[in-house]
Amino acid sequence: MGNPDSQSFNTSKLSPEQRLESPNTRLINAGIVTIHDMETLRACVAYENANQQRVQVLRRLEDQASEIRSQDG
């Protein structure tokens, strides 16, 4: 089967635009839940505020921020 890591997609390299600009809400949610650091999360919040300003997406980002904080604690 080979190395599973060679087949996985490295989500840490995704830009905020790549994470948040999809017509499919499942892909947007997947982009958000794969954020594991506050720097990336802040960049995504800034991108969303500057562009779409979707309340649902901002709420998901807020939820993810809480998740990151609880893991850091």
Score class of each variant (00 low, 15 high):
M1N: 15
M1T: 11
G2R: 10
N3I: 07
N3R: 09
N3D: 05
P4R: 00
P4I: 09
P4A: 00
S6T: 13
S6F: 14
S8Q: 07
S8E: 05
F9C: 08
F9N: 03
F9H: 13
N10Q: 11
N10Y: 03
N10L: 15
T11M: 11
S12C: 02
S12I: 02
K13I: 13
K13T: 11
K13G: 04
K13E: 07
L14G: 05
L14H: 07
L14P: 00
S15I: 04
S15Q: 07
S15K: 05
S15E: 04
P16G: 05
E17A: 13
Q18S: 01
R19T: 04
R19K: 07
L20F: 00
E21N: 10
S22P: 02
S22N: 11
S22G: 07
S22F: 02
P23L: 10
P23G: 15
P23C: 01
P23Y: 04
N24W: 05
T25G: 09
T25V: 08
R26D: 11
R26Q: 14
R26W: 13
I28F: 05
I28S: 05
N29I: 01
N29V: 00
G31S: 01
G31L: 00
I32P: 00
I32T: 06
I32Q: 01
V33E: 01
V33L: 08
V33T: 06
T34S: 09
I35L: 14
H36S: 09
H36A: 02
D37A: 00
D37S: 06
M38N: 02
E39M: 06
E39P: 00
E39Q: 12
T40N: 04
L41M: 05
L41C: 09
R42V: 01
R42W: 05
R42S: 07
R42F: 08
A43I: 11
C44H: 00
C44W: 03
V45R: 02
V45H: 01
A46Y: 07
Y47S: 06
Y47K: 06
Y47A: 08
Y47N: 10
E48M: 00
E48S: 01
N49P: 08
N49C: 08
A50H: 14
A50W: 06
A50K: 13
N51F: 03
Q52T: 08
Q52S: 13
Q53M: 09
V55G: 10
V55I: 14
Q56I: 14
Q56W: 08
V57F: 03
L58M: 12
L58W: 05
R59D: 04
R60H: 04
R60Y: 13
R60Q: 11
E62L: 07
D63K: 09
D63N: 12
D63L: 12
Q64G: 03
S66M: 14
E67Q: 13
I68T: 10
I68F: 00
R69M: 15
R69W: 13
S70K: 02
S70T: 06
S70H: 08
D72Q: 14
D72M: 13
G73H: 10
G73Y: 01
